[in-house]
Write a protein that binds this DNA or RNA. Sequence first.
RNA 1: GGCGGGGUAGCUCAGCUGGUGAGAGCGCAGGAUUCAUAACCCUGAGGUCGCGGGUUCAAGUCCCGCCCCCGCUACCA
Length: 515
Amino acid sequence: MSRYYVTTAINYPNGAPHIGHAYEAVATDWLARFARLDGRDVRFLTGTDEHGLKIAQAARAAGIDPRRYVDGMVERFVAMADRLAISRDRFIRTTDPDHVRAAQALWQRMADAGDLYLDRYAGWYSVRDEAFYAEEETIVQPDGTRVGPTGTPVAWMEEESWFFRLSRFTEPLLDLYARQPEFVQPASRLNEMRAFVERGLKDLSVSRTSFDWGVPVPGAPGHVMYVWVDALSNYLTGAGFPESGYERWWPADLHVIGKDIVRFHAVYWPAFLMSAGLPLPARIFGHGFVLYRGEKMSKSAGNVVEPLALAEHYGVDPFRFFLLRAIAFGQDGEWSHEAIVARVNAELANDLGNLAQRTLSMIAKAGGRVPAHGEAGPQEKALAERAGALLSTCRAAHAAVRPDLALEAIMDMVGHLNLYLSERAPWSLRKTDPAAADGVLRHAAEGIRRCAILLQPAMPERMARLLDLLGVPEDRREFKDLDTDLQTGAELPAPVGLFPRVEPPQPERETSQAV
RNA sequence: GGCGGGGUAGCUCAGCUGGUGAGAGCGCAGGAUUCAUAACCCUGAGGUCGCGGGUUCAAGUCCCGCCCCCGCUACCA
């Protein structure tokens, strides 16, 4: 049985989960659920990245210790995962004891390889921005004070730090990109990474002494790991590293991440692993952002919408469907209430929901049992051929990390099923040739069954209900069951609507009426 | 500035190595139908394929120039 270890990035819990977090979680959940239904042995990891200066400061500002602070914040991320039906096998926290051990074990391997050395990290530091700036980013003002790009004063700071010999990995990384171009996707991201590495790599500062909210560096009191060593190693922790048996899951098949952190995953991470003598993940996929009317959501723009509010309003599954279907995975996409309403009403209410409803209600009127197959004419054969190709199309989309393409193919099938009903008009056939009408309904029902099975990764709850309505046993809902027909004569429950039409929320009294 | 990607119907986008009248979905208009969630089905309107040159029997599809948009260009994650 083929194995599939897939991860999301871990989230920094210094604010509420937003639609971007939801998007990545839902997309990765689709990948994991798809692989499970396809009979693969799946491990799906998601979680939170809880160390670092910002968390420590936020906790201090709140007057509580960091651990209590993150406990409170992490709850919201777990709640989102629960509400959005994210089928993770583990929700990892970088504060988990086994993660601390894993990060330290990785560190030790890098140290043993001779790739870590103690030096000084120096640069222009802005206390207000909590950031170091390169010399050329700073400006000396007329009054002699030096300021950073944000206009805040900077001062020369030096700090003892452990460094990682990243420079040593320039050639190995370029080799990796050349030999395994699918390592970073989309391909445009690989190009960027290649260009970045080709400029040459400088060694990387990987520890800090200025704060202590982090994983202690083994054998170096006062040092905590720079957050990326800590954060990236979560993928190893999730596989069980360094305990024996971690090879069952490591290396990961796929890291799903946002396009903004591709460099850390496509450059630093493989370098760390190469240093540690560990195998590399098969693939890194950097997805795009979900924008609101072309802009990133921000508190100042006043357009922050909680993903759970959208799930609540439109339904979890329709919301998931929208995210997966409406955005080409890898590109930026936009959401708006109008876009969700249009997509959900057109494809879920009008097409899929109505298809199920019209088919099931005709069956109900004809006795409420799975009708017998009729003769397969040219239309039925064409339909069967189309249905038969669906799985391989979806598998290809899964392999390419393109849930949108899988859903497009399934919805195309839904469209053809509606067309099929219109052409064969079983409601008319019923009057002249009831057996033929039954046959048409049976063909339609089987087509719906296939679509429902393949749509489960996107809409687990609604498709479970649809499969219930079709009388598909719970142990006949995997991809290997696609060719297992319904049982003729089986009694079906009374049909109920699955996808009511949706409307945008009531506008909250626009303040820009007469501007 | 350097490197890379992109500008095609109102909207979101397909259009591989140049070749039958430039496409899809949504939206819009009309029609048909009534099994169904005012849904499904059919038809239609709508495009100087960013701008200007050039190569070619033939160019969204190749070449040159220009305009605009986006991404990357290391230690906040």
